[in-house]
Every structure is written in C-alpha cells, then in structure tokens.
C-alpha cells in the first residue's frame, strides 16, 4: 500500500481552497449558532447564493470580479433579511425550519429548467474563472514545497482564499470581544434579559444573521472557484457537514471552525485514499470501489463522534462552559 501517496493527498487538503471555504462557512455558523444562538440550517443556501451570484454576474452580465463579489454579498443580505424579518421575533426553532426550507428553495430554483439559460439548470455553470485568474500577480510556474506545490493559478487561489479566512477570523474575533459581541452572547443566553436592559434584540439578531450569512456567501464563492457550480453541491448535507466542523472545533470559538475544517478534510481525504487502496489491494473483498467511497463518510462520522464524545466542547471550546450546559 502506498502510504506516502495517502498522506500526501491528505496533506494537500490542509490548505486547499475547499478547506478554506468550509472554514469560512463554519465561521459564519459560529457567529449564528455559537455566539448568537441562531439555529441557521440554511448555510448551504447562503453558499449557493455566493457561488451563483458570482458565476451568473460574470457569465451573464460580464461583471468584473469585484462587481460579481458584491452581487453575491448583496444577494445574501437580501436573503438574510427575507429569512430574518418574519422569524427573528419568534422562537429560535422557527428560524431553523425556515432556513432549512429556504435553502432548499434556493437550490431548487437554481436546478429548475425554467431558468436554464442563466443557471445552467442541473448541469450548473462553469467557465467563470478567467476573470479571477487575470488578477493573478504571480508569474507562471510552480510554487510551494512537498504536497503544497501548486501552479500559479492554484497558488493565487489559495493565497486569496486563506487571506479572506484570516481576515474574517480577525473580524469575528474583534467584534466578539467588543460590547457588540457581549450583547450578541447575552442574546444567546436569554434574549428577554437583554431586552430588559434596553438592547434592540431584533436588530442585533438581524445583524448577526447578515454577518454570518455573508461569510457563508463568500465561502460559496471560494468553494466555486476550484470547480464548477453545480446545484447538487448545495444540499442540506453541506450545511450538516459545516455544523459537524463547527462542533468539532468548538461552536463559540474563532479558531475552532478553521482547524475543524482542516481536520475534517484531512480525515476525509485520508480515509478515502486508504479505503480506495484497501479495496484495490483486496483487503475489503465484500466491498466495491463505489461502496468504499461511501464508507469514508461513515469513518469521518465515527471519528467526529469520538472527538465529540471525548471532547464535547470541541477542540477549542472552553471546558468550564460544559459544567453549566442546561
């Protein structure tokens, strides 16, 4: 068995743009769920709006990169307002129901044939990368070392993706240690108490929903750049993977979503490489290669369960908090 290749492929995932995208989306969920206590089960919808907003702006309207970026962000602000206005005054579970349904509506709207000319229907969209590649200041050639060696475009993409993640992490860290963050965390604990102290809870929840949603949207754009935009990528399972990453790293932390995403993708790549080769080598005679591909998710699930059982606060979560979980 080629362990070198397995580890090499796993290491590649450590800094891949997809890992960055998941980290950013999980950071958005940390703002929603970890800090504010908002149960957003529609993060995949925010990501889809980012990916499609960016791709459609470039392909259909010929926008520059920054214009396409702003369209995606604008779309997610509108989406957050539509979700939040009717539900944020209600109990927390209503938001969960509405977000999960709204994200599916978004995905189905992008899938339906009615708008195929713009959305590409089930086949999705591709061919929107040139504009981003044109901004690349790096000369052609290969950069990096070992498993982290990439061509100029991929290196550029990684630099941009991780810069955005770092910037977003600093942003979240700063607002959460400010008085604004104190109100947000207070709302998570008991919104009536915060209301009784003269804070406009509804407005704060809306700001949080928009903030975390925009992070998810930008994550959707990063997610789209190394691949095509396909509607089936934005199913509810995507949201659940991001929740898994968040809980793995620690819900009300800044580093948790980032390290959580790295662990998730490295494990996923490791298991998929391992199983594929094990099937090839005849170690798993009862299994086809396709079944092996499914097995990796089971193994990742087990690994995450183990971490959550033995470290329920997540990797970066505060152990003390657990003593008071109701």
């Amino acid at each position: 068995m080629d362990w070198g290749a397995i580890f090499n492929n796993a290491a590649v995932e450590l800094v891949s743009p997809t890992t960055a995208a998941y980290a950013l989306a999980a950071l958005g969920l940390a703002v929603h769920f970890g800090y504010t206590g908002l149960l957003n089960f529609g993060q995949a919808g925010f990501m889809a709006l980012g990916a499609y907003g960016y791709a459609i702006s470039i392909l259909t309207f010929g926008f520059p990169v920054w214009g396409a970026f702003l369209v995606g962000v604008g779309a997610s602000v509108v989406f957050a307002l539509i979700l939040g206005i009717p539900t944020l005054r209600l109990r927390a579970d209503y938001l969960a129901i509405v977000t999960i349904a709204a994200a599916e509506i978004v995905r189905l709207l992008f899938t339906t044939n009615t708008f195929a000319a713009v959305t590409g229907s089930a086949n999705g969209l591709s061919g929107y990368k040139n504009e981003f590649a044109a901004l690349n200041p790096l000369a052609d050639g290969s950069y990096g070392f070992g498993p982290f060696t990439n061509n100029a475009y991929d290196t550029w993409l990684r630099i941009v993706a991780w810069s955005i993640v770092i910037l977003a992490a600093l942003l979240v860290w700063q607002v959460m240690r400010s008085p604004w963050g104190r109100v947000i965390k207070g709302i998570r604990e008991d919104e009536d108490a915060v209301r009784a102290l003269g804070k406009n809870v509804y407005a704060y929840k809306m700001q949080s929903l928009i903030f975390g949603g925009v992070l998810g949207t930008i994550a959707g754009m990063i997610f789209a750049l190394p691949r095509a935009v396909v509607p089936s990528n934005y199913q509810t399972t995507l949201t659940f993977f991001i929740y898994a990453i968040l809980l793995l790293g620690g819900a009300a932390t800044v580093l948790g979503p980032i390290i959580g995403s790295m662990i998730f993708w490295v494990l996923l790549s490791f298991f998929s490489g391992f199983i594929a080769r094990a099937v090839e080598a005849g170690w798993l005679p009862f299994m086809t290669a396709i079944q092996g591909g499914q097995l990796r998710f089971i193994l990742v699930g087990v690994a995450i369960m183990l971490i959550v059982i033995f470290r329920p606060q997540g990797i970066f979560g505060n152990k003390k908090e657990l003593a008071f979980v109701r």
């Binding site: 008085p179 604004w180 104190r182 604990e189 102290l197 903030f211 008071f324």
Partner: peptide
C-alpha cells in the same frame, strides 16, 4: 446570563455604549 461572566452581565446593563454598534465595535 449563565455563560457570561458576572462582570459581563453587569457591563451589559450600561446604557448608551458606543461599542455596541457593530461598526464602531471594530
């Protein structure tokens, strides 16, 4: 507010805080 410190509970009570605006918080 259980998972806030006693001090943070108190600070939350103060009125007219500049840093409670999201942009000024930065």
């Amino acid at each position: 507010l259980g998972l806030l410190t006693v001090m943070d509970n108190m600070l939350l009570g103060a009125k007219g805080q500049t840093g409670e605006n999201m942009f000024r918080a930065l």
